[in-house]
Design a protein around this nucleic acid. Structure first.
Lengths: 224, 224
DNA sequence: TAGATTGTTAATCGATTAACAATC
DNA sequence: TAGATTGTTAATCGATTAACAATC
């Protein structure tokens, strides 16, 4: 694209990439993978944006944070862009995951096929229930929570999913952080705190419904 | 607070409330409910903000979209603010929900205690599997998907949770919309489209992990 | 070449923060 | 009264969109 390569095109963007951009990147990836399955070779920013409700300018700007992936007059090549986005997100190699808490939600996550398809692999599960420890669920071994310090480094697990009841969540977070994880996805409906070097993402299912409730009672009209 | 009431203080905010504000409102509610359980009477915007990593100004501004709930020199009264936020979110009365799709995730959601505690109640479940239809899970009756048109109006269900495989999600959405639901929470990892008068919220579990993966590989330092 | 589409700059829009008079 | 804290305005910051030269 630009004649000679001068400065390496923003190798891995360092902290100035808005979170919303990364979030849309995941959506682009999902659509692109579907397009790829459907046999599409290329796609324009206008088409991709329309599928997701974004402007063409936004699609191009988002991608431009990470380099020049498009071809003027053509668009983006689907296979190439899929590979690029996976590389940016860090999901080009499968991450081993730990799941802590094997209640209804934890077991559902443990068997969730979507993870496997997107570059994640549940490597270990933890609980405190003696009836579960030592067994396997969906082929995944269940360890006692006390074993996180041993198992997590051993399996080189860097990401943990917390699916325990709210009152236990902070203690579990402390334990997995001590064990060396770098990122936590928290499903417990409580605010937890972790050291700054640890990444934290939270999903609260009741909150998602509250957003919906608000939108419905206020009859918000979406789009324009 | 302000001497004589002049214009009714922004009754129910109409469309100009940013989505991010509503999202934080849910977080405030969750913290306030915890504070209430712990016996706190009042809380200042500074304290509440600190708990969630927001500025005091943001807390006050967010709440001010909906009225004047605070007391200068005192702060906010926890029980009062909890009631107000529930009213704003529309969760002061329990919404009956439908869950479509009783795979691992659907069944986990069906038994999720968090919903009950936040003003939601699963009233019906739907699936296409003859082995599930007619039974009950967690005390909730399971109907065939073909019965949505009949059951949803009958139980006055306005919100539906979609937890079916991606290829089925759009058809299910169409069906529940025809049945009259006003809002959909979609867990299928695919973009679905609905008429503008229907509210749509999406949770993609793999995308949440991708956000985490990006943050970890780019060693983002959170906060300042 | 003509048509399509990118990457990027500048303009616009919106959201967050700082500051402070009003209030308890 | 002095101290604390709100609600709100103005200033700042950041993100989205429009526009267009460059490119295939």
């Amino acid at each position: 694209m630009s004649g000679q390569q001068e400065k390496p095109p923003e190798q891995s963007a360092d902290g100035q990439v808005p979170k919303a951009v990364v979030s849309r990147l995941s959506l682009y990836l999902r659509e692109l993978q579907r397009l790829l399955r459907d046999g599409h070779e290329t796609i324009s920013s206008t088409q991709l944006g329309k599928m997701l409700g974004f402007t063409d300018a936004q699609v191009r700007k988002d991608l431009a944070y990470f380099g020049q992936f498009g071809y003027p007059g053509i668009g983006y090549r689907c296979p190439e862009l899929v590979a690029k986005i996976k590389e940016i997100l860090g999901t080009n190699h499968a991450w081993p995951l730990a799941i802590v808490g094997l209640g209804n939600l934890g077991r559902a996550l443990l068997g969730y096929r979507g993870f496997t398809h997107q570059g994640f692999r549940v490597a270990a599960a933890f609980d405190v229930d003696a009836a579960k420890v030592g067994r396997q669920f969906e082929g995944i071994p269940v360890y006692h929570l006390d074993q996180v310090g041993e198992i997590i480094p051993q399996l080189q697990i860097r990401l943990a999913i917390i699916a325990v009841p709210a009152p236990a969540a902070q203690k579990v977070a402390d334990a997995v952080v001590s064990a060396g994880v770098d990122g936590i996805l928290n499903f417990a409906p409580v605010t937890i705190t972790v050291p700054k070097h640890v990444q934290l993402e939270a999903v609260d299912l009741a909150i998602e419904l509250e957003q919906l409730s608000f939108a419905v009672v206020n009859k918000l009209s979406r789009g324009e």
